[in-house]
Design a protein around this nucleic acid. Structure first.
Length: 583
RNA sequence: GCCCUCGUAGCUCAGUUGGAUAGAGCGACGGCCUUCUAAGCCGUAGGUCGCAGGUUCGAAUCCUGCCGAGGGUGCCA
């Protein structure tokens, strides 16, 4: 099926070219849904920005374009009116909308065309640290990255998920040294909770005992050189951590598997060659005993060129080295043309320096581009970074427990007759979904306040609200003993304005998905799904389905319900959130 | 000091890359269930879009300067 927005755009460009033959063919007609439905379905704003270039008055140009639309948009646009300084307000033909929606109903892809030019995307996200428990903050990279992976894959891109575990480097020196002091061997094993506190002990000693810190630094070098004892314990720690990560990922319902693990240790052998090449190219120079790159455009606190250290004075490597090696691997070995890094906004300058260095080194060139996808901090009610009541880092597992427990209590109250199994399943889908959606629905780059009442509310832009819209549709089909699939092929007719509004919204799905893939901003999909669910709830109030006035209207409403359900389900799936049959 | 991000209703947040009269939810107030899930819908109240300039047909959105918050700024990541 032709995409509604693209179709309108080509109608507008054709009308422009018919009205003004000298107009450029690649002009953006600036077609978008109107903010105010009273004015029309879509508006085209090209006349105002183009008028000056073409030497015409905006309104005259708009009128000339409008006159041509009768030919170029026959059967699609029912009316086009010029308003204000030169807006062209478009009202689409009802039968066009009805046919488009019916086509969407039978299309397995819901009208979303695969990308014209599929890309190899290397997507770096999640990246928890070995020997530490996952904490609340990890939901950000993990959920945002996972949603982006799903959207890009749905558009037909090849996505290489990269879980860049923190499994190497300075912190392991201190942890290993501390464990060896305690008599650890490779056979020692402790659950992740204990490792977490051992790590904290090691950190305190590192900060307080210079002699220990010195041994810890030497231990890093030993580990990186392959010392058997160090490596054996390191492997045991890693395996224990992987168990913990697998549990967390399964619970969150994200795509990541062991196959996606590309920890820092994976790049160990690439670090020295990367440094050597930068040195050979004259980009890295020695400064105060360390090897540094000074990418242009960055200043330190004294106003001097800012250093990015790629080799410490003791010979060790830092995360800049690893990130540069990772980037090269992504380009040279994985053949990625779009490299995406989903990390904390605090690393923005670090990545800007890494990308600039990679450009200068010739590793990022041509159609290959690297993008940092920054996100803000999760805050508590006190507007400070989210902590437990005791002031420690809040564990992700505890948060998810509480989410499911809160959801379970609400279900118990609202729908006590469900079976225990079903309550548990619903509590899981609703609780986890609410937390993930709460994270995804907010403009990525902003800090946000973690608020159970916002996330688990059944009104407003929340996962439960969307899940409930889906559940209500399933209830209709269940009540009528009908298969939602059976509605495929039913013609759609509008008998109430809300049906038309619902169809218009449904047909905006492709544009929204494209926009998410381009801006790497899942909240846009959330906003769309919320609008859609809200319209469906209005439809549900005003338009009885099973008891509609005629069989034709009933079938049409079944069709609208069916395609809405599929759109909600697909949209939530792209966000990594489950739908349920009852709640 | 320099650089980056953010500042929208009492609270939590949207605002389709510059479009028309800035929208939701919570909280407050008032309606709607013998009828497909009221886990919903409808209505009322609530705004100097941090402040001041600028750019233009048009600015919450872009530019400049202030104010405020957070972050970064060489041997952690």
């Amino acid at each position: 099926m032709p995409d509604t927005l693209h179709l309108l755009e080509s109608c507008l460009v054709a009308a422009l070219r018919a009205a003004v033959p000298s107009a450029p063919a690649d002009v953006d007609p600036q077609v978008r849904p109107t903010a105010n439905p009273q004015l029309g379905d879509y508006q085209a704003n090209l006349a105002m920005s183009l008028a000056k270039k073409l030497g015409q008055k905006p309104r005259d140009l708009a009128l000339a374009i409008t006159a041509q639309l009768a030919h170029t948009a026959a059967g699609v646009v029912a009316s086009a009116e010029v308003a204000g300084p030169g807006f062209i307000n478009l009202r689409l033909a009802a039968d066009f909308l009805q046919r488009q929606t019916a086509a969407m109903l039978v299309d397995p892809r819901l009208g979303v065309a695969p990308a014209a030019q599929p890309e190899k995307v290397v997507l770096d996200y999640s990246a928890p640290n070995v020997a530490k428990e996952m904490h609340v903050h990890h939901i950000r990279s993990t959920c945002i990255g996972d949603a982006l992976a799903r959207v890009l894959m749905f558009l037909g891109h090849q996505v290489a998920r990269q879980n860049h575990l923190g499994d190497w480097g300075t912190q392991f020196g201190m942890l290993l040294e501390h464990l060896l002091d305690q008599g650890w061997t490779a056979a020692s094993s402790r659950p992740i909770e204990d490792l977490n506190s051992l790590y904290q002990q090691a950190k305190s000693r590192f900060d307080a005992e210079p002699a220990f810190a010195e041994r810890a630094r030497k231990r890093v070098v030993a580990l990186q050189a392959g010392d058997p004892t160090s490596v054996a314990i390191w492997k045991a720690l890693t395996e224990e951590s992987l168990k913990h990560f697998r549990t967390a990922y399964a619970r969150l319902g994200v795509l990541l598997t062991d196959d996606d693990i590309r920890g820092e240790s994976f790049y160990n052998d690439l670090l020295a060659p990367t440094v050597e090449e930068l040195h050979a190219k004259g980009l890295a120079v020695e400064s105060q005993g360390a090897l540094c790159v000074f990418p242009p455009g960055f200043l330190d606190r004294d106003g001097n060129p800012a250093a990015m250290i790629i080799r410490k004075s003791d010979g060790g490597f830092l995360y800049a080295t690893t990130d540069l090696a990772t980037l090269r691997h992504s380009v040279d070995d994985l053949k990625g043309t779009r490299l995406i890094y989903v990390t904390d906004a605090r690393q923005a300058q670090h990545f800007a320096m890494v990308f600039k260095t990679a450009e200068l080194a010739g590793w990022l060139q041509g159609n290959v581009r690297a993008e940092h996808v920054p996100f803000g901090t999760i805050l508590g009610k006190d507007n400070k970074p989210f902590k437990t009541r005791e002031g420690g880092a809040a564990k992700l597992a505890d948060l998810l427990d509480e989410a499911e427990e809160r959801a379970r209590r609400i279900i118990e109250e609202k729908n006590p007759s469900l079976s225990a199994d079903e309550k548990q399943q619903i509590a899981h889908a609703v609780g986890i979904g609410a937390v993930k959606y709460g994270d995804l629905a907010i403009d990525r780059v902003k800090d946000y306040v973690f608020d159970w009442d916002r996330m688990l509310n059944f009104d407003g832009n929340t996962a439960p609200y969307l899940q409930n819209a889906y559940v209500r549709i399933q209830a209709i089909f269940r009540k009528g003993s009908l298969d939602p699939q059976a509605a495929a092929g039913y013609p759609i007719v509008f008998t109430d304005p809300v049906e038309r509004s619902l169809a218009l919204k449904l047909l905006q799905l492709p544009a929204v998905i494209d926009s998410v893939a381009q801006a790497l901003e899942p909240s846009r999909l959330c906003g769309y799904l919320y609008d859609l669910a809200s319209l469906y709830h209005q439809f549900y109030e005003k338009c009885p389905v099973l008891t509609a006035d005629s069989p034709a209207v009933r079938d049409s409403r079944l069709a609208l319900s069916s395609v809405t359900a599929r759109t909600l389900q697909k949209g939530l799936d792209l966000l990594g959130i489950a739908t349920i049959e009852r709640m």
